[in-house]
């Protein structure tokens, strides 16, 4: 018994029954038959192929459902703009590891669901980790119209197979994300962006212990240092001469490389900004090496999509292989 009025069994029954009318309405909208294109903030709709224009467009619900600052979790509906979410969390000195869509590309309307569906991490991945690690629970509508809960509400959980992982970065091809519980984290106590001209990016990586991001365009290195002020200043003293500067605007396409291969990027990339220590290269053109999978892995990917969405209802025309 946890409350005077409800028994444990009552609470267990309630837990297994999704009664939220907003979610039920969304599930009814998704239905179980026709092709659907989920629309987020349209900040990354140029990635992963072109959605079938004849498919029905649908937006997920929006709004913060439940924020627990002392639990460091927030339940938020998928169409909520990340910037709106972060504004609410900042009142308690917190944010999430999701890119907020206002940082480097000038976009202001990335949605929580969109960011999770695309699964691309912010440039601060050295400190903030991968987007997928911020997702604790995810509720989505499956191809047969059923509302499904993946993962769980706690910060640690190994109960059953990890459907959250397969949904993050799936480009909305396996289910329509309705809401999500995210891990929050404290806002950096101090942070500063530095610019170093003609610096060795590898040396910056090895010396900047407080670096959340290190960017390099072949000539200039930018670094965001975060943490305790004294630690940042110690770091800065170890780095080449620097000046305060905002990071560069990022080109729209991402190339995926091993971190140590970044230093050999040649002219084929055109203008680029590389995430040192991570391996992402932001370029003006799609990755010429992108989308290559071994035959066995490609077959496994196809089997996943065939099983979760046998009739290709979700985001027809788009594909994770094209991301």
């Amino acid at each position: 018994m946890t409350t005077p009025d409800l028994t444990t069994q009552d609470l267990l029954r309630a837990r297994r029954t999704i009664q939220d009318p907003v979610l039920l309405e969304f599930a009814a909208e998704v239905g179980s038959s026709d092709p659907i294109v989920m629309v987020g903030g349209n900040t990354q709709s140029h990635l992963g192929g072109v959605a079938d224009p004849n498919a029905r467009s649908l937006r997920a619900p929006s709004g913060i459902v439940k924020y627990q600052p002392d639990e460091m979790t927030v339940c938020v509906r998928a169409a909520t703009p990340v910037s709106e979410l972060h504004a609410a969390l900042s009142e308690h000195g917190q944010r999430t590891s999701l890119p907020d869509g206002t940082n480097l590309q000038g976009a202001v309307s990335s949605t929580v669901g969109g960011v999770i569906a695309v699964g691309r991490s912010p440039v601060t991945r050295l400190k903030d980790g991968h987007v997928r690690d911020a997702v604790l629970q995810l509720r989505y509508v499956a191809a047969d119209g059923a509302l499904v809960t993946a993962g769980g509400p706690t910060v640690k959980n190994v109960s059953g197979f990890d459907l959250c992982r397969i949904m993050v970065g799936s480009l909305g091809t396996l289910g329509c994300i309705a809401d999500v519980i995210l891990r929050t984290r404290p806002i950096n106590r101090h942070e500063r962006w530095l610019k170093m001209v003609d610096a060795d990016p590898k040396a910056v990586l090895n010396n900047a212990k407080t670096a959340a991001a290190i960017l390099w365009d072949g000539t200039v290195v930018w670094a965001q240092l975060v943490g305790h002020q004294a630690d940042i200043e110690s770091d800065q003293a170890r780095l080449p001469t620097s000046s305060s500067a905002l990071p560069p605007k990022l080109p729209p396409f991402r190339w995926s490389r091993r971190p140590k291969d970044l230093y050999q990027i040649g002219s084929e990339a055109g203008r680029f900004v590389a995430e040192i220590g991570v391996g992402v290269v932001h370029c003006e053109q799609p990755d010429p090496q992108g989308g290559k999978l071994s035959a066995n892995v490609e077959a496994l990917n196809r089997r996943v999509r065939d099983l979760f969405d046998p009739h290709r209802r979700f985001n027809p025309g788009r594909s994770v292989e094209l991301l």
């Binding site: 990890d162 397969i166 970065g169 396996l174 091993r258 391996g279 066995n296 990917n301 996943v304």
Partner: peptide
Amino acid sequence: EIVELGGLDSEPTGYDLRGA
């Protein structure tokens, strides 16, 4: 069959089969 899931590059192509 032998498959390699995930990868050493920053954003391997396809579903996150490694994570699954």
